[in-house]
Amino acid sequence: MASADSRRMANGGSVGGAFQPHLDSLRQELQQGDPTLLSAVAALLAVLLTLVFWKFIRSRRSSQRAVLLVGLCDSGKTLLFVRLLTGLYRDTQTSITDSSAVYRVNNTRVRGL
């Protein structure tokens, strides 16, 4: 029994056995302190975590979503807000208070484009 456990541990375990040479190579590269490889691994982890987080957020079914319009002063945020709500062009002026409203999205999609 002990010999089977020691063989399994020598092979890298039952899960990582096929990837053990790659893991050993990665471990050696990381121990050398190569900043390029460390940067690539960090970027890969950041992308993977972002994808997992995005999938988690997309999996939640919520009937309401919030949209925040941000930009520089006099860049047209209020005009865009009014155009989204009414569909019309209106003269606007610098807003002093927050603007908020419920916007219903038309969910009809055109197929075949």
Rank of each mutant, 00 (worst) to 15 (best):
A4C: 11
A4Y: 15
S6N: 10
S6G: 06
R7P: 07
R8Q: 14
R8S: 13
M9D: 12
A10P: 07
A10H: 15
N11T: 06
S14K: 15
S14A: 15
V15R: 15
V15N: 12
V15G: 07
G17W: 09
G17T: 13
A18G: 10
P21K: 09
H22M: 15
D24A: 11
D24C: 05
D24G: 04
S25C: 13
L26K: 05
R27W: 08
Q28V: 14
D34H: 05
P35Y: 03
L37G: 09
L38I: 14
L38H: 13
A40G: 00
A40W: 00
V41N: 00
A42E: 09
A43H: 03
L44T: 11
L45K: 14
A46L: 04
V47F: 04
L48H: 07
T50S: 11
W54P: 01
W54C: 01
K55F: 08
I57Q: 05
R60W: 09
R61N: 12
S62C: 15
S63P: 05
S63W: 08
Q64A: 09
G71Q: 05
G71T: 02
L72D: 09
L72Q: 12
C73N: 12
C73P: 15
C73V: 11
G76S: 02
G76L: 01
T78H: 04
T78K: 03
L84P: 00
L84K: 00
L85Y: 01
L88I: 11
L88N: 15
R90Y: 10
D91S: 08
T92L: 01
A101M: 00
A101L: 01
A101N: 02
V102D: 12
R104V: 12
V105T: 13
R109Q: 09
